[in-house]
Design a protein around this nucleic acid. Sequence first.
DNA 1: CGAGCACTTGATCTATGTCAACGGTAGTGG
DNA 2: CCACTACCGTTGACATAGATCAAGTGCTCG
Lengths: 191, 191
Amino acid sequence: MQPPLTDHSRSTLDLPPGSLLYPAGSLGQPWRLSEGIVRFDSVAKQGEATFASLAIAGDILGCETLLFGCYTFRATALTQCRLTPWPEGAEAADSTSLLTSLAKAQQRAAELVALRGGQATDRVLGLIRLLADQAGRVVLPTRQDIADITDLRFETISRIVKQLERSEIIRSIRIDGVHATRSFTLGATSA
Amino acid sequence: MQPPLTDHSRSTLDLPPGSLLYPAGSLGQPWRLSEGIVRFDSVAKQGEATFASLAIAGDILGCETLLFGCYTFRATALTQCRLTPWPEGAEAADSTSLLTSLAKAQQRAAELVALRGGQATDRVLGLIRLLADQAGRVVLPTRQDIADITDLRFETISRIVKQLERSEIIRSIRIDGVHATRSFTLGATSA
DNA sequence: CGAGCACTTGATCTATGTCAACGGTAGTGG
DNA sequence: CCACTACCGTTGACATAGATCAAGTGCTCG
């Protein structure tokens, strides 16, 4: 994970996987995540970070800055990300958009809770489904990040992803003929 | 669990432990939980309910009704609860109060996620701390509800609570000289 | 070329799940 | 009053999913 990016300009922001969007407690503004996956961590005084939450494309990040001025959680890009300042242009953070963010946050919380219960395979599948786009394509975070999200170990994630791949529930994508270890499409996943 | 209460009057609402506050999808309004613990469940078409989230004293419930008219989750009282309609009196659901609810929801989500990771004992202790009031008093939900929240089994919860009681980390309270199986105060819990 | 990182895979261990039996209390109906 | 049921909690014996430890691969970067 790299040092914070200094370019918090008013326009679009692109972040590579693994990079820090902002540290916990820093000053900033809300963003809309238009592409990618962002991980939030609670950071204790001693510096240990524990996984707190997740944002996926379409989510609003850092709304709490409108209240406190600074971010509550540390935010890290888990895949290639694109962000734009929010609210956009003349549009204000009105009650309706805040209510929408609130409803979405509650829904997201329930989904995250579900990703931390039940059989290991179901958790990983749940996460994959959550992260997949409409076309069923996913770029997964690293095994370690998946492990942090699902409260499993990266070895376990590795075994499960491999097994899903072998059973063709997910199909790995080759880029330029090379096996891309993080890119998949969903196979038979009607359930 | 009893049938829904019909008395959704405009004033204070008191609910006994185990009773349904509202089912998922029903019409209603937001509430402020002034006392007690409420459990939210996602309800699938087939009727199975899975634990989704938790509200504790001070929280606002059912904000999504301002947007959709109906509740997203089923809400059940886990302990004796007291609720009042929200927003109260002339006070409106302005941006600031919504932002506060949003910030609180995100914080709560992070806490819930933490309750579903790590050692079983730590999860139960985490929940107890979350539910304790300033005086360190707690009325715990049933073993089964604690199990649903922490993704453990009620037998495991029983063993852990008993062990905490024996190690004096929590001290059970006697009411009228009778052992109250759900009421505790926290012992040495500086950490 | 060596170092670092992400990932894979095997062997073994253990925390927690599972199954089963039992105790206490509240409610209900005779 | 007792008998009966229902629910919640406790405890023991045993099983197992996933953790842990360990070794090795392949890729990228300097």
